[in-house]
């Protein structure tokens, strides 16, 4: 076989191997393995309690995990095995540095209510990355323009609608110039008429080649924007594949049942 015939595999941005996590006796994640190549968008769907959000939060160690490993752009997340084979937690400084290169957007926005929109965005670039304040402000205004909120720089978050707050949260995460973005059900807390404006921003990011993981209930959106869909249930990945095949020909009963419930609930 010639070299040319080998499939081109992009280097993975996020590589999850054998990830397991328990809350007491309840196993939230069971041996989850998943690879997200650079520049790709992956959407994770599944019923509530399937472990989607927990998995996402493990990627930047907002959630500790019990077993397995996550490698982000070549460096391990959270733990490393010592020479004696025992797993040790990395020093906080290292964890913080890795976190600063992974953006996450939360379901409930989590903006800092005591800071203006502009300060929300520049706080971490200036104080964590040591970026020059003027440069950070220029970047922030740039990002605000990208998410369509140029006129809101000096507002306080609580004065904004949910959709606007969520777009600020996206700008805040992007201001750290992350290598990847994680989205945790970012439209679930929004009124239906505000969902579109947030999804449009995410779609643009996908087109710009950002590596992204979306945990979402927006099936239509997942189908449009994702390169790969992952279906999770009971803490495991049941099925994954490109959206067209996965939605058209689900192979597992669980996914068929899940999609049917979804269609019944939303489309009829």
């Amino acid at each position: 076989m010639s070299i040319d015939a080998l499939p081109v595999v992009a280097a993975p941005m996020i590589d999850i191997r054998g990830l397991s996590k328990r809350f007491g006796s309840h196993e939230v994640l069971r041996q989850v393995s998943l690879t997200i190549p650079k520049g790709q968008t992956l959407a994770v769907i599944g019923p509530s309690g399937s472990g989607k959000t927990t998995m996402l939060r493990c990627i930047n160690l907002l959630e500790e995990f019990d077993e397995g490993e996550i490698v982000f752009d070549g460096s391990p997340i959270g733990y490393r095995r010592g020479p004696d084979g025992r797993r040790r937690r990395l020093p906080e400084r290292e964890i913080a540095t890795t976190r600063s290169s992974i953006g996450i957007v939360f379901q409930s926005f989590n903006l800092f209510p005591h800071m203006t929109v502009l300060r929300n965005i520049i706080a971490a670039p200036v104080r964590v990355k040591g970026m020059d304040r003027t440069a950070a402000e220029t970047l922030a205004r740039d990002l605000l323009a990208r998410v369509g909120l140029s006129d809101k720089a000096n507002e306080y978050p609580l004065r904004l609608s949910g959709g606007q707050q969520q777009r600020v949260a996206i700008a805040r995460a992007l201001a750290m110039q992350p290598k990847a973005m994680l989205f945790d059900e970012v439209t679930s807390a929004l009124d239906p008429e505000l969902v579109g404006e947030v999804l449009a921003v995410i779609k643009q990011l996908a087109e710009d080649g950002m590596t992204m993981v979306l945990v979402t209930h927006e099936m239509q959106f997942a189908r449009d924007v994702a390169d790969t869909i992952v279906f999770m249930a009971d803490g495991t990945i049941v099925e994954q594949g490109p959206p067209k095949t996965l939605f058209a020909n689900p192979t597992s009963d669980r996914l068929r049942a899940f999609l049917k419930r979804y269609h019944d609930a939303y489309l009829l």
């Binding site: 930047n60 907002l62 906080e92 400084r93 913080a96 540095t97 976190r99 600063s100 290169s101 992974i102 953006g103 996450i104 939360f106 409930s108 989590n110 903006l111 800092f112 209510p113 005591h114 706080a123 971490a124 104080r127 964590v128 990355k129 805040r172 995460a173 750290m176």
Partner: peptide, 25 residues
């Protein structure tokens, strides 16, 4: 908890988090 999550996710370490996110609130 969500405020701590947001601060940690931006790469802030404990002292900075306390100083600019926790104490003012």
């Amino acid at each position: 908890q969500s405020q701590w999550d947001a601060a940690r996710s931006l790469g802030m370490r404990r002292l900075l988090m306390l100083q600019i996110v926790v104490f003012p609130q």
